[in-house]
Design a binder for these strands. Sequence first.
DNA 1: GAAGCTAGTTATCGACTGATAACCTGTCAA
DNA 2: TTGACAGGTTATCAGTCGATAACTAGCTTC
Lengths: 185, 185
Amino acid sequence: MTGEERREQVLGAALRVFAEGGYAATTTDPVARAAGVSQPYVVRMFGTKQQLFAEVYRRACARVVEALAGVQAGPDAGERMGQAYIELLRDHDLLQLMMHGYVAGTDPEIGRIARQTLAEAYRLYRERSGGSPEDARSFVAHGMLINVLVASGAPDHLGEDPDVDDLTTCVMGEALDGIKKRAAG
Amino acid sequence: MTGEERREQVLGAALRVFAEGGYAATTTDPVARAAGVSQPYVVRMFGTKQQLFAEVYRRACARVVEALAGVQAGPDAGERMGQAYIELLRDHDLLQLMMHGYVAGTDPEIGRIARQTLAEAYRLYRERSGGSPEDARSFVAHGMLINVLVASGAPDHLGEDPDVDDLTTCVMGEALDGIKKRAAG
DNA sequence: GAAGCTAGTTATCGACTGATAACCTGTCAA
DNA sequence: TTGACAGGTTATCAGTCGATAACTAGCTTC
């Protein structure tokens, strides 16, 4: 297998594994096993575990920004950007990893990327939808609420607590069907 | 020193230290040093590191819920609840710890508390302000955005990126002054 | 005055984990 | 054939960390 192919494979495995456990709690060993290579090889490929995480995180953030940037300006651009964000939920790991980035204060680079991604979403919303700063703020805020709900496992624990169900259905709405399908399938 | 006093001291120290580093990345040693006791004593006091974190997290969530529950119903209850949440920012560690709870999927109990706290904020907002589900959803969403911005260090990195500054000032607004004062003092 | 409880300590261990070193193997050019 | 390079592996270590065990000092109670 090509170095480039193997690298992509490891990055994909790392996305899944890091998304589940976060940076600190995840060892390089399950990443290696998920990618089908040995643990030392993973480390040597990226130098350090931290550099691997940084690379995974950079790519995840880039994918989110690209998804939003792909929405053309127009009268209903705001709604389409919301839809584009919901679409990202298909890849459960993506948004969950983003959450881990927000709290990974160990690496200042991670924090910088996290802040920039938030700001870019805000900027893109304003640019494409032409909405007010308050509209854009609400857009980003709802995105964060979705992230938090997903990260805390709300969609996986429906039916356990009526209050939680209320909030979850109010936030996720129709998107919930897609999520549950994904979880089941 | 009384056992109860010492216990409070350790819980206070653990809040600060866990807020900074999260659960997995934080060892029991700095908690012990911050509390002025030995590391084994911290562990024995709570059984395991995980149980210590759970206790700290429970208390933090309880404080947030209490702050919101302390707002009386009335015509401007919504605004006052927003104000109450901003007040919580005085204790920087509190909201930062909450963020760590959202991504601490290792312990199912933590996830349950996290979801319940979110739901309780939603429920209280609806109850006290009489607002629509959408209003309450926005309230909680903005709370999460504040949490994420604080956790990712946005208030500490103003002036580095214009886009980030835009978003931060739009979200935090006047509250920013109080935060900066706290950071300076 | 000794038993016993509370509030701690020091010493130490066993498991884990990121990282390093050394080695292996197939392919391809000279 | 030889050598060099890409793409890996196994063996192993050095540091870290949560947890346990054993011990100590002060206070109270009978």
